[in-house]
Design a protein around this nucleic acid. Structure first.
Length: 552
DNA sequence: CTGGGGAAGGGGCCC
DNA sequence: CGGGCCCCTTCCCCA
């Protein structure tokens, strides 16, 4: 942020899209503000036409021209309430597509994938259709999925899987009897490429979950995950891909191919903008951050990225670096685990993981500590262990200055509330000057004498505010006249900071503003297009940079 | 809450 | 170019 920009500040809200979606989904489930009801074979799905128009080409066209579809209702116009009968889409598939629209996660049984594909094609939800096609294309030749398995074993597994699906279907069917299928009503909008309905054995649309059914805990737990980079972590961070458990396939939106642009968040658009085979030279947002973590190491540390024919995953569109890495990546989508431990039967997606696993059976611990008898399975375990010997704790919490030997422990610490609980007593670990910096420059107290600061009961809190503000991604809203707002990217951090730093709670708005200014300076390097980085260990460095700037 | 072990996924290097 | 091997990061789980 420079003063020459007329006070304009770019204020990213990385979680806004997911929170918005989550809120809309809550409204949908509560039936609030729903102005469109989709029906399928007796099941009713209240929804929002704006959301449907955003995800579905069909609804976009429908609401744009109000023709071609069977829209009935008190007021069929744009502002009215409509009922759209979609008997051509199986209720279960429609439910899944609605879930996708509101959660960016597609949760379907593999047995129902064809229904979902058909529904996605009919409704013009291209990314879902592409994903279904990609999966079906692989599952169509199921032998390819398990190339390393014994054929008979494969066949038996296929049978058991199908049986399992049938059992599940029967169970649900009996629990939720539905009206019999009706004639399709969406004929005029049948996609040209739509395959003729394949009456698969389990395609009976009667076994759907009614929309009025409360979300299962399994579904529910997905939603909060959307808060983190859209994935989550119900979804694992690094593009964990789908999971295929008991025939149920779940995709996060990260994995859905070619999402329509109007559905893409900024980050995703950036990724999509890379195009096929395009490798961003310096993409620093969202997924690129995650996948580029090692690359970032390479940029600063020893390894440098070698141009190695990056390939794009047809399912999630992710760029996979390294020759021969795409098949490995694809197994994260298919769930294929071709490498089985001969000792315990546990299966792995990768040979090297199996190899490491085998060390547990062989007792091999190839990484001995030179300082003690400890031996380790993994090199990084040894590395962690060595830091205990050396006492090195390079990862320090910028809030409470507690140091950790492992970065993930610092991250966990920061996600919790422990550092906030001790904030009022926290002092920097480094030399005496550091503490003064926190209270002076760090607190924004330049201009306030230490005595003045000591009179502020919340002064320690504001020391932490500077730490918050030095974080990349922390943004400031306001004009410096006391009406500023502080917003932090992290859920817990934001809430905590808003609670602590709300202007109405600060007896000295000027002090707050100086703090904000300091934080703004601290984030200068983090703005300019770069998104917040999850590398918390850098916060401290940036905090130090701020202090150094102040000292200059 | 923290320390430690382990799993999972991605990237780099090498053959 | 594919695959093996290794390292790294992130996350989950347990004590």
């Amino acid at each position: 942020m420079s003063p020459g920009e007329d006070g304009l500040i770019g204020i990213p809200f990385p979680e806004h899209s997911s929170e918005l979606l989550s809120c809309l989904n809550a409204q949908r489930r509560a039936g609030l503000l729903c102005d469109l009801t989709l029906t399928s074979r007796g099941a009713r799905y209240p929804t929002h036409r704006s959301v449907m128009a955003a995800v579905s080409l069909y609804f976009r066209q429908l609401f744009g021209a109000e023709e071609g579809g069977e829209v009935r209702g008190e007021a069929g116009g744009v502002g009215g309430f409509s009922v759209c009968q979609l008997d051509c889409v199986a209720p279960e598939a429609l439910d899944a597509l609605l879930e996708f629209a509101y959660t960016a996660t597609l949760t379907i049984r593999s047995s129902g994938m064809r229904d979902v594909l058909r529904g996605a094609q009919l409704l013009g939800i291209k990314c879902v259709a592409d994903a279904c096609r990609a999966i079906l294309g692989e599952t169509a030749g199921e032998g390819e999925l398990e190339p390393r398995e014994d054929r008979s074993q494969t066949e038996s597994k296929k049978c058991s899987r199908r049986k399992k699906d049938r059992r599940r279907v029967t169970k649900v069917e009996s629990a939720h009897p539905q009206a019999p299928p009706q004639q399709l009503n969406l004929n005029t909008h049948q996609h040209p490429s739509t395959p003729s309905p394949q009456p698969s054995p389990v395609q009976d649309g009667a076994h759907c979950r009614p929309c009025t059914q409360p979300p299962s805990p399994e579904q529910e737990e997905l939603h909060p995950s959307l808060g983190q980079n859209g994935d989550r972590k119900g979804c694992r961070g690094t593009g964990s891909g789908n999971t295929s458990i008991n025939g149920e396939v779940r995709w996060t939106r990260d994995l859905l191919p070619a999402a329509s642009n109007d559905m893409l968040s900024e980050d995703e658009e950036e990724m999509a903008g890379m195009g096929n085979g395009g490798v961003p030279s310096s993409v620093s947002t969202g997924l690129a951050d995650r996948q580029g973590a090692a690359g970032a190491v390479g940029a600063t540390g020893g390894r440098k990225r070698k141009s190695q024919t990056p390939q794009q995953c047809p399912v999630c569109q992710k760029i996979i670096h390294g020759a021969g890495k795409l098949p490995r990546h694809m197994r994260t989508h298919t769930g294929e685990k071709p490498f089985q431990c001969t000792a315990c039967g546990v299966r792995f997606t990768r040979n090297d993981k199996l190899k490491i696993h085998m060390r547990k059976h062989t007792g091999e611990r190839p990484y001995p500590c030179p300082h003690c008898p400890a031996r380790f399975l993994h090199s990084y375990d040894l590395k962690n262990h060595l830091s205990l010997h050396s006492g090195a704790r390079p990862f320090e919490c910028p809030l409470c200055h507690k140091a950790f030997a492992r970065e993930d422990h610092l991250q966990r610490h920061r996600k919790g509330l422990s550092c906030l609980e001790v904030r009022t007593r926290a002092r920097p670990r480094r030399g005496p000057g550091h503490g003064e910096e926190s209270r002076g420059a760090g607190v924004g107290g330049r201009g306030h004498s230490p005595d003045q600061l000591d009179t502020l009961e919340n002064v320690a809190l504001q020391a932490h505010s500077s730490a918050f503000l030095s974080r990349p991604g922390v943004v400031i809203h306001g004009d410096g006249q006391g009406a500023s707002q502080l917003v932090l990217p992290g859920e817990a951090d934001r809430d905590g900071a808003l609670a602590l730093l709300g202007p109405h709670r600060l007896p000295y708005p000027g002090l707050l503003w100086r703090t904000l200014q300091l934080g703004a300076r601290g984030m200068e390097g983090a703005t300019g297009g770069d998104s917040p980085t999850p590398q918390h260990a850098r916060w401290e460095e940036e905090e130090e940079e701020v202090v150094e700037e102040e000292e200059e």
